[in-house]
Amino acid sequence: MTSQQASAPFSPAADDMAAVFRARYLEMVRLAGLLGADDPEDIAQEAFARLMRKGALDADPAPYLRAIVCNLTRNRHRHLRVIREKIPRAVAEPSSEQAAIVREDHAEVIAALAALPARRREAIVLRFWLDLSEREIATTMGISPGTVKSQLSRGLAALARALEAKA
């Protein structure tokens, strides 16, 4: 992509949107999944639907999509937490997907990640899965770069503690 193309406004005509979808959909599904969404595809689809409703965008819609995925996943967690508080005995048995997580090689890391607060988990995933810079993470999460640095530092420390405790 040339710099001229990069600075041009993104017009989400049907073909363009389909191209963005092909290029970014799986990334958004996986981002939602790594953030612990119970239905990552629904989150990703909603993010793309909002992108289409938004109209003209900057050249790269990925930051917008990532921000929407983070926000929707965080909201979904909050919603589920409220439901679980109202219905204490709900959903006691793990789903088959959760069971698969427990069986995988990196189960301890993923379990420790899941125990982090939502913002810390987002920072960790955006940094170490997507390799975003602290500034890019700050833009995605709507926080300052300093807060990103703090979230990353605390998140890594918490993960290290959790893994040491299980070792």
Binding site: G33, A100, I101, D105, F128, L156
Partner: peptide, 16 residues
């Protein structure tokens, strides 16, 4: 733990 974390995220992402 960065290396282990990156490997775990990459592997887990493949499940979606």
């Amino acid at each position: 733990i960065e290396g282990e974390l990156r490997d775990a995220l990459a592997a887990h992402a493949q499940k979606f």
